[in-house]
Each structure stands twice: as C-alpha cells, then as structure tokens.
Amino acid sequence: MTYAKIIGTGSYLPPRRVTNQDLTAMLAEKGIETSDEWITSRSGISARHYADANVTSSDLAVRAAERAIEAAGVDRQQIDLIIVATSTPDFVFPSSACMVQSKLGITSNCAAFDLQAVCSGFIYAMATADRFIRSGMYRTVLVIGAEVFSRILDFNDRSTCVLFGDGAGAVLLQASDEPGILSTALHADGSYVDILCVPGHVSGGTVTGDPLLKMDGQAVFKLAVNVLDKVAREVLEQAKVDAAQIDWLVPHQANIRIMLGSAKKLGLPPERMVATVHEHGNTSAASIPLALDAAVRDGRIQPGHHVLMEGVGGGFTWGAVLLRM
C-alpha cells in the first residue's frame, strides 16, 4: 500500500510581533477600549504577527516552504504538485500556488493550485494531497497554509480584530511504503455561511459588499466544539486507532477554550496538545502547520508518533487528519 508521509515541515512568521498591549494602544487611538486581560481571558491569545504592507501570502508561503524542503533534504525539482490553502491570496488570479512555484524556481513538471476552505484549508489540502499520492498521480507534494488576515480585519470591531494574525506553515509529503496519513475526513454545511464570512467581492473594478471579516463568535464556538469531537472520532474509527494512542493533538489554533475542550472530550491531557495560539493568534489555514512545525522542531513530535490534526472554518467547514510521523 502507498501512503502519503510527511518528510519535512517548515513555518514562517513575519517579524512584526504585535502584543495585546500594542493592540490595546492601537485601538485606544480609535476610541475602542480593550485590554490584555480581556483578550487573553476570552481567547488565550497574547500576541500575533502582522506582515508589512508589501508582503503577500505567497511571500510567507515561500519562506515556510523553503524550510520544509530543507528539512526534508530533497531537491525542490522533485516536487510535482503544490497546494496552497489560503483565504487571502495575492491576487484574484493567478493562484498563490503558481506564485510560490515561480518564486521557488520549480521548473520541472509540476501542477499548482489554491484551495479555499478558510481555517480548515490546511486539513482539506492534506486530504487532497493524500488522495493524489495514494492514486499514484503525484509522488512529492508541497502543502502550504498561508494567510495575511490582518488585511481583512475590521479594526473598529474589537471582538474580531484581536483574534487573527499572519503567517505560513508547510509540509512536504512523499509517497512511501511506510504508514503516513492513516485517515482523513472532510465536512461542510453551507447553511452556516453567515456566522463567519467576508461578505464582499470585486465587481466592475470596485469592491461590492463588505470586504472585512464578520463573525458570530458564540455561534462559531458552539458549532466548533460539537463538530471537532465528531470528526476526530470519525478518523480514529476509520484507522482503527484508539484515542489513547494519540501522542499529539494539533488543533486549529483559534481559541484555547475550544482547543482544551477538544482534548478533554478525547480524554487527552493538555500536555499532549500542541498550542501556539498564545503567540500566533488565529492564522486561519496557517495555524495547524505552524503549530506542527513548532512541535517537530522542538522535539516533542517524533518519528512514529500518532498525530491528530483537526480544524474548523468559515463555510462552515471542518475536518481532521490522523497520521503517523
């Protein structure tokens, strides 16, 4: 049997680190009151990173990809598919994936496309890459989650603007006879489209609607807690793996309360959950690969470990991937 196995991880955060105190001062200039305690008590976030005005999602993606390629120790010309999960692409088109391909200098036979499932994007991209590798169509796939969410935030709305940040994470997957991705599950329910969205678009050369993020926090929280538990158990059942066998839970880094709730429902102690939300904020499709790379590089996640990744996002979308490192 052919598996899709992770052979390298990488991540990148733009240098500008914005603490809760920094953001409190920024919002105070607009007459909006908030505080470090207000933000951390509701989300667990202490800081996030913002990209400079001239930096795009593909720029962040390339930096993360280069680190994943270096970690894998392979020639980048071996990559035959690039998938970029993003809700904040460089352009309407071409895809950010094609921009990444160009910036990486990959000139061999390589396909590239973007995938849009908001905060579930990396999970959707991993499941897609898994199917391509298992089918034999592609052998070495670069999967990236990259976002510049700071560009679509309403800084007059403290309930949302304090939550999100920018960054990118990447993994390099390769066909292997050894177990890698064991199971995946993807879901969506468009009836919840209004609880997390950016209701604007470009038409006739102008922006119509509202181009800034809108979220019903309570509705998202309630739905996320429910669907994450179900999809986690779904992939465990598919792979015939018990929850107790999970070495690491790497959830979407949106809210520490949702994350801890997911771990508790699976019977996992907080010590077996990778959390970077306090330093990164919610980086949407980049959050899971950012957290994964952090835990790989500091030695927590080791070869042979069972890792469960799960995410939820606007759409409403959700999914999970169970893998063996």
Rank of each mutant, 00 (worst) to 15 (best):
residue 2 T to A: 14
residue 4 A to K: 10
residue 5 K to V: 03
residue 6 I to C: 13
residue 10 G to V: 09
residue 10 G to K: 10
residue 16 R to L: 12
residue 17 R to P: 00
residue 18 V to W: 00
residue 23 L to S: 01
residue 25 A to L: 14
residue 26 M to F: 15
residue 30 K to C: 00
residue 31 G to F: 07
residue 34 T to Y: 00
residue 35 S to K: 11
residue 36 D to F: 03
residue 37 E to N: 09
residue 38 W to D: 01
residue 39 I to W: 02
residue 42 R to M: 11
residue 49 H to S: 05
residue 50 Y to C: 00
residue 53 A to L: 13
residue 55 V to L: 13
residue 60 L to R: 03
residue 61 A to D: 07
residue 62 V to F: 13
residue 65 A to D: 14
residue 65 A to N: 14
residue 66 E to W: 03
residue 68 A to P: 10
residue 70 E to R: 15
residue 73 G to T: 07
residue 73 G to W: 09
residue 75 D to S: 12
residue 75 D to R: 08
residue 81 L to G: 00
residue 83 I to F: 02
residue 86 T to H: 13
residue 88 T to L: 03
residue 89 P to N: 06
residue 89 P to M: 06
residue 93 F to K: 08
residue 94 P to T: 12
residue 96 S to I: 08
residue 97 A to H: 11
residue 100 V to K: 06
residue 101 Q to F: 12
residue 102 S to V: 07
residue 102 S to M: 07
residue 102 S to N: 13
residue 104 L to I: 13
residue 114 D to T: 05
residue 118 V to K: 02
residue 121 G to Q: 10
residue 124 Y to C: 02
residue 127 A to I: 01
residue 129 A to W: 00
residue 129 A to V: 00
residue 131 R to I: 01
residue 132 F to N: 01
residue 132 F to A: 03
residue 133 I to G: 01
residue 141 V to L: 08
residue 144 I to K: 12
residue 146 A to D: 12
residue 148 V to F: 02
residue 149 F to D: 01
residue 149 F to V: 14
residue 159 S to Y: 00
residue 160 T to A: 09
residue 160 T to D: 07
residue 161 C to K: 05
residue 164 F to E: 03
residue 167 G to R: 12
residue 169 G to Q: 04
residue 170 A to C: 12
residue 176 S to H: 04
residue 178 E to F: 00
residue 179 P to L: 05
residue 180 G to L: 10
residue 180 G to H: 13
residue 183 S to Q: 08
residue 183 S to H: 09
residue 193 V to W: 11
residue 194 D to A: 14
residue 195 I to A: 02
residue 195 I to W: 04
residue 198 V to L: 05
residue 206 T to H: 13
residue 207 V to H: 08
residue 208 T to M: 15
residue 211 P to E: 11
residue 215 M to C: 11
residue 217 G to F: 14
residue 217 G to I: 14
residue 218 Q to F: 05
residue 222 K to G: 10
residue 223 L to K: 15
residue 223 L to G: 02
residue 226 N to E: 14
residue 226 N to F: 08
residue 227 V to C: 06
residue 231 V to K: 07
residue 234 E to M: 08
residue 235 V to I: 02
residue 236 L to A: 09
residue 237 E to P: 00
residue 240 K to I: 05
residue 241 V to H: 01
residue 241 V to R: 08
residue 243 A to H: 06
residue 249 L to D: 04
residue 252 H to Q: 10
residue 253 Q to T: 09
residue 254 A to Q: 10
residue 257 R to K: 15
residue 257 R to A: 12
residue 261 G to M: 06
residue 267 G to P: 07
residue 267 G to L: 06
residue 274 V to M: 12
residue 274 V to I: 15
residue 276 T to Q: 13
residue 278 H to D: 15
residue 280 H to Q: 08
residue 280 H to W: 02
residue 281 G to Y: 05
residue 282 N to A: 10
residue 283 T to P: 07
residue 284 S to W: 09
residue 284 S to A: 15
residue 285 A to L: 08
residue 288 I to H: 02
residue 288 I to Y: 03
residue 289 P to M: 02
residue 292 L to N: 06
residue 292 L to S: 06
residue 292 L to P: 06
residue 295 A to I: 03
residue 296 V to P: 00
residue 299 G to K: 05
residue 300 R to F: 03
residue 304 G to Q: 07
residue 306 H to E: 09
residue 307 V to H: 10
residue 311 G to P: 08
residue 311 G to D: 06
residue 312 V to E: 04
residue 313 G to R: 06
residue 319 G to A: 09
residue 320 A to E: 08
residue 322 L to H: 03
residue 323 L to M: 15
residue 324 R to N: 10
